[in-house]
Design a protein around this nucleic acid. Structure first.
Length: 385
RNA sequence: UCCGCGAUAGCUCAACGGUGGAGCAUCCGGCUGUUAACCGGAGGGUUGUAGGUUCGAAUCCUACUCGCGGAG
């Protein structure tokens, strides 16, 4: 898969461009909302579309469990099943190797999970994970990998990375032999591992490039290491990846993280943060985050972010949203999710515009500085009258 | 009027002679390829009032106040 780079930033590694799938063109840098189980939590596909998402994420492990591949195939794939006609990327289950550590065993063949739903044993191999993603019918599939915790030893990271690279090769060999089931193509991305060690990261990149994937992800970050270390690893890894293909930083992150990593050459992001934090009451603004459960919003008629053009900010007050959270009305989660996703997507849109205008670096510095001020302290509650 | 029961955190209640707790509510924080509409923390009390017994009382005794139930 080619990334058509249209603009590069003169003062950083940031770049803007597009890549193409059979479900449409995606502009980069891009943020992909997470819809693990075939739904961006609390929203309908139409909402996600209206917010402006160009591509969303699904998860192989979770979809394999429920609804299962028999139903997925009968439904004609995930696009039709969930009524989403834009691109979909599926994660392989590699993150569940990390998040469900207590429920899995690993060996050279693959991973054996114990279902977190009913305890059933499930064997995931590099090969069958490729097949499962074919049945799901995502536009971009990810190789099965191991996402090791940050605190693992050097030796563990080395052995784990080497195994993930062998798995990646097996996945690619299987991928290239399989037909596409629903009349559209599917790309396969490799995943760079190696913890926080530059030598391992570079060896991992070498191994993946030798196989030659459609795109390259950086995995195993934001798993407990300090933010500065994450930036350093991205800075060391991204330049070693092919310049004319997409680079995807998995699972990251905060608005600040996204901007910093765009400056280091990343094109694609996904993260549960905007959706999960929304459901838990935290919203993002150009002036930093707000906790909508806080009493300061009790009588505040202003929108979450006066600079935001989302449906929530155009129509609802902080006082109302705080009320909805206060009384556990699901509409509160919906409105906060709409806002946070719009904010993330809008942030990426602004980033692309600034890259095209050649102003990315200075804009990024100013934006991050603004966001680091706590907005709730800057705008105390005003009376509703 | 008499009899009985009760009174403990904002609310509903534990603790029944040995350092007064819980749930909810309130306030605050966290969340990074979703096991998460989740998790964590904090504040909050002269135990209705006044006496008494005891080394020690929310706890036992007396009176009073208030509430609920019953009898008349």
């Amino acid at each position: 898969m080619k990334l058509a780079v249209t603009h590069t930033d003169p003062h950083s590694a940031a770049r803007a461009g597009t890549f193409e799938t059979d479900h449409g063109v995606v502009e980069t840098p891009i943020f992909m909302p997470v819809g693990t189980r075939g739904a961006v939590k609390s929203l309908r596909s139409r909402d996600v579309e209206e917010i402006g998402a160009q591509i969303i994420l699904g998860n192989t492990y979770h979809l394999f469990l429920r609804p299962g591949m028999e139903l997925m195939e009968a439904a004609g794939g995930l696009h039709r099943f969930m009524n989403w006609n834009r691109p979909i990327l599926t994660d392989s289950g590699g993150f569940q190797v990390f998040s469900l550590q207590e429920l899995r065993k690993m060996n050279e063949a693959g991973v054996e999970f114990q279902s977190h739903i009913d305890g059933t044993r499930l064997r995931f191999t590099p090969e069958n994970v490729v097949e499962t993603q074919r049945t799901i019918g995502s536009d971009i599939a990810m190789v099965l990998d191991e996402c090791p915790p940050a605190m693992s030893s050097y030796d563990y990271h080395r052995d784990s990375m080497e195994r993930s690279m062998r798995w990646a090769r097996r996945a690619w060999e299987h991928h290239r032999r399989l037909p596409f089931p629903y009349g559209h193509r599917q790309s396969l991305f490799g995943i760079v591992q190696g913890g926080t060690h530059a030598d391992l990261r570079l060896r991992s990149v070498e191994a993946l490039r030798e196989t030659g994937f459609d795109g390259y992800a950086i995995g195993g970050l934001a798993v407990g290491e300090p933010t500065e270390v994450m930036y350093r690893v991205v800075e060391e890894t991204a330049p070693a990846l092919p310049a004319d293909q997409p680079r995807y930083l998995m699972g990251v992150g905060t608005p600040q993280n996204l901007l910093e990593c765009i400056a280091r050459g990343i094109d694609m992001f996904d993260c549960v943060m905007p959706t999960r934090n929304a459901r838990n009451g935290t919203v993002f603004t150009w002036n930093g985050k707000l906790n909508m459960r806080n009493a300061v919003h009790r009588n505040d008629p202003s929108p979450i972010d006066p600079e935001c053009g989302c449906e929530t900010c155009r129509n609802y007050s902080r006082a109302y949203i705080r009320h909805l959270f206060n009384v556990d009305e699901i509409t509160g989660l919906v409105l906060a999710t709409i806002h946070n996703l719009f904010f993330y997507l809008n942030l990426m849109e602004r980033a692309r515009a600034e890259i095209r205008a050649g102003r990315y670096s200075s804009w990024m510095r100013e934006t991050i500085e603004r966001m680091e001020i706590n907005a709730s302290r800057k705008t105390p509650a005003q009376g509703l009258g």
